[in-house]
Design a protein around this nucleic acid. Structure first.
Lengths: 143, 143
DNA sequence: GCCTATAGTTGGCGAGACCAACGGAGCGTA
DNA sequence: TACGCTCCGTTGGTCTCGCCAACTATAGGC
């Protein structure tokens, strides 16, 4: 039987967000690990799929990831032949990350797992509540 | 100018939660550090204030913290004379954590900082949206 | 008197967010 | 043209947070 948390914490959005995000992260991580992937990989693959070959800096800016972490994870994806890295002819500083066919298949594989995790997480909410939650989070993010 | 994230991520609650929780955590942490405290300290002080002298195990269960972390943080609070730890006469295994006057003052000090962080975080939302967000998060947590 | 469960403590791990420094390369300007 | 500033990728760290394993001591049921 779970003991109720202190009222102060229950009224503190940052605490609630931390708790729920931890639970959501756990679910997503477990699902990703089931197919041998990490959460970062999903974000990178999504970015490369939607915005085409793009630099690591752009991936980091779009997915709110540190440059270091992008470099590491892209390296992992490259070793799995999910993406290829090649120098940008227009600017040799940049390395363009391109999705391969294997990467596209991998993306859909991970996406299916992620979808299960989301459904599991959001199960207690009805459709209206889910939409409201997502909208509120997007609003908080968009600054 | 912030580049927009991939649509897939924007539609993924767990990703949104992680991002917003990270931003919220950053704000709260900065505010807590301004008065030389950690976020864990606030949770512990809240629990002890609301539920009276209680065991470390109970604090952990209520605040969703690992026993190890509770022990460490309570030790820090004790060194700052914010709480006292004494053996439970009814069960020598338990250590009852009790709030001191200094601890109560410290709690209010930290609470004021936390409140600023919350107001800052939730600024883009109107009252209705805030209530809906908090209610949805509580619902997701309550399982 | 056993056996299991619980409480506290110690030590460690892994994921994530973040920061600092470096070399290489673009770009504007004097 | 040469300088300075900025950006990109890379390496090597740090810090928080959640979590797990092992150990000792004790409670409670059998």
């Amino acid at each position: 039987m779970p003991l109720p948390p202190p009222q102060r914490l229950l009224a503190t959005p940052s605490w609630l967000l931390t708790q729920v995000a931890a639970a959501a992260g756990r679910r997503s991580r477990e699902r990703c690990e089931a197919v041998g992937a990490a959460r970062y990989h999903y974000a990178i693959l999504c970015a490369v799929e939607e915005f085409g070959p793009c630099s690591q800096a752009e991936i980091g800016a779009r997915c709110h990831m540190d440059r270091k972490d992008v470099a590491e994870r892209v390296g992992e994806l490259e070793r799995q032949h999910c993406v290829v890295r090649c120098q940008d002819p227009a600017d040799p500083r940049r390395k363009l990350v391109t999705l391969t066919d294997a990467g596209r298949a991998r993306l859909e594989e991970i996406a299916a797992e992620i979808a299960v995790a989301q459904a599991d997480l959001m199960e207690p909410l009805d459709d209206g509540e889910r939409d409201a939650l997502v909208a509120a989070l997007q609003k908080l993010l968009g600054r």
